[in-house]
Design a protein around this nucleic acid. Sequence first.
DNA 1: TTTAATCCTACACGCTCTATAGGATTAACG
DNA 2: CGTTAATCCTATAGAGCGTGTAGGATTAAA
Lengths: 134, 134
Amino acid sequence: MLSKKPQYAFRALTTLARHQGKGPLPISKIVKEHPMSVKFLETILLELRKNDILGSRKGKGGGYFLLRPPEEVSLAQIIRILDGPIAPLKCVSLNFYERCDDCNEISCGLNKLMAEVRDAKLKVLDHRNLRDLI
Amino acid sequence: MLSKKPQYAFRALTTLARHQGKGPLPISKIVKEHPMSVKFLETILLELRKNDILGSRKGKGGGYFLLRPPEEVSLAQIIRILDGPIAPLKCVSLNFYERCDDCNEISCGLNKLMAEVRDAKLKVLDHRNLRDLI
DNA sequence: TTTAATCCTACACGCTCTATAGGATTAACG
DNA sequence: CGTTAATCCTATAGAGCGTGTAGGATTAAA
């Protein structure tokens, strides 16, 4: 299950995607369309900015904006930033790999099957993007 | 990410599957093959028994055993029992559905995409079973 | 100078995950 | 019938994480 962070993020990003090219959009405007905690959304958007999904401008008239066109931002990128691994196990994760202490990965059956699950998820999440969300 | 419960469960079930038809297998034997907390595994196997995956026999010579042949026990069944929904969101879950308060499911783009993810996962998890794990 | 925005860091609260504890019950075996 | 070996059951503990909150510091436009 996705946590709240990516869920809220997707709502905000939908709005930002629709507004793309029209300058920065402040949090106050986003929350008007999607009611949620301003402060919580702030930490989420900050995280997305630090990971080069969003840009921002401070001060009056400032706000957030997408750094790339919506079709170049996959759902997988967002989920990885805010929720971590997409794979069901660390030992089959592409971006968060950790060795698993008690299974040998060459012969471990679970390993192989979970890699299949990972690929199945990525087939959707890597190709679907913010444009598809609108 | 899968929690520890299904991970431990899959290890134990692998052993039980290999032992199928040869009578009940006590926890003590399972832990000898897969080192882990006896008491924790006990609660896990109990949960699987209450959900008709395992049978058990008490007393000396007792233990746990699969109620059905390994190829009839899908990974999806185990994960649902021990970890809950396979879908990324409750509002697209087949077995744990809950309405989502702030998106209308007919027009919500995220809803549709997460249903795709759910189906992609199920395509693997519904068809893969304990036999594949061995 | 006022106003409106992001930026930053710390922390609080509750829930869930990961077990652990301690006994009650059951059954085989000599 | 007593010992031994197993499951059964319920409660609870500790840590970590998810979900925010708080309070200001900084920046920039008007």
